[in-house]
């Protein structure tokens, strides 16, 4: 199929990124993503296929595993999200995974269906606390922890990338601007408008 000549547009039309010491906000626009949903009773085969292809063990609890150039996010019982950088080579994770999981799982491209932001810095938990109802204290939620929840009524999948701390948050693309409005208000006391 011929490559589209349309320019890619960020899902966030109005989000000001921040490099503030208290809170860094980055939009991750160059991701390739695919959802994996195991067919009924085939989860063990899915895990074996991913183990063989990428050398990682798919998590059965809300966690994230990283392999070489790819991450798998737990996305519900027997479901995962595969995420990688698209890069100059226009990597397409759906095309890559379909043959690996043929017949045992549904693999669907989510690259343009989800919008992802990365938040990091010492005040990130204070910012998230205003809209996310779960406990992100390091004693309760650790690096590679995953939560499917909501932020100010907007459904999100959230995972912790490192102990800086840094979190990445994925949402349906059409909610990106609403999320950005909430995030801007929530972060204002730390980084200004």
């Amino acid at each position: 199929m011929a490559k589209s000549t349309l320019a890619a547009q960020s899902a966030f039309t109005d989000l000001k990124t921040s490099k503030h010491a208290a809170l860094t906000i980055e939009v991750l626009d160059d991701l390739t993503m695919a959802s994996i949903a195991s067919s009924k009773g085939r989860a063990e085969e899915v895990k074996a296929a991913i183990r063989a292809a990428y050398g990682v063990e798919l998590p059965t609890t809300p966690e994230r595993v990283t392999g070489k150039g790819i991450a798998f996010i737990w996305h519900g019982p027997d479901q995962w999200m595969a995420i990688a950088d698209r890069g100059a080579g226009m990597r397409d994770i759906e095309v890559e995974l379909k043959p690996v999981l043929a017949g045992i799982a549904a693999v669907v491209d989510q690259s343009d269906g989800r919008a992802v932001v990365r938040l990091s810095g010492p005040r990130v938990r204070d910012v998230l606390a205003k809209g996310v109802g779960i406990d992100l204290d390091p004693r309760a939620f650790k690096s590679n922890g995953v939560a499917i929840t909501h932020a100010s009524h907007i459904g999100i999948v959230l995972w912790q990338v490192n102990d800086a701390p840094a979190y990445e948050i994925a949402m349906f693309r059409s909610f990106a601007d609403s999320f950005a409005t909430w995030l801007t208000h929530s972060a204002a006391e730390f980084i200004g408008h």
């Binding site: 609890t61 809300p62 519900g76 019982p77 109802g133 779960i134 939560a147 499917i148 929840t149 909501h150």
Partner: peptide, 11 residues
Amino acid sequence: PCCGERGIDEF
């Protein structure tokens, strides 16, 4: 059983 303890706003 999957996610741990959550508020009923999620249910």
